[in-house]
Amino acid sequence: MPGRLRIVLQAAAVLVVALLLALLGWQVFQKDNEPDLGRPAPNFTLPHLNSEEEVSLASFRGKAVVLNFWASWCGPCKDEAPLLESAWNRYKDKGVVVLGVDAQDFDVDAQRFVDRAGITYPIVRDKHGSTLGHYGVTGFPETWFIDAQGRIVGEHVAGPLTEDDLERNIKIALGEPA
């Protein structure tokens, strides 16, 4: 085999291996990256559960946001829904929004869940689960708190919330002494 052809083939093989390694590295580092405390919360725009209206996280700038990830088939989500609804009713006039993100779920099941739990806070539907990776969500329920400047604050609660978790972190998000 002529020397030039051999060099071209070797270079092509090295290039293919390098590309595969780069792809592997990209996949490893892209997945499930949690946002850092104090950093801007990753924005998203998703359809409202029971309408075609699009809801953007950025549209809540100026308010503290309780961002709750859930699904209708998740048992602990049923227990925590009344706490979130209660917090929404107590704090909605004080600059707090509870925003539910329903993912990996059937539309009808999510709507039935909302009706049964009497949820009145806004719920968006993430059909493809595109927000989960950006918030490092690995199960349901999980909750993040965002301040009026759109930054991640307080604790990332991976699992069902308690009343104390909610009160403490809402105060942090509002910039009040806990």
Binding site: Q104, D105, D107, K127, H128
Partner: peptide, 11 residues
């Protein structure tokens, strides 16, 4: 399959 893709995406 199309109904499930509509609910959960192509994944």
């Amino acid at each position: 399959k199309n109904k499930l893709v509509d609910q959960f995406g192509e994944s």
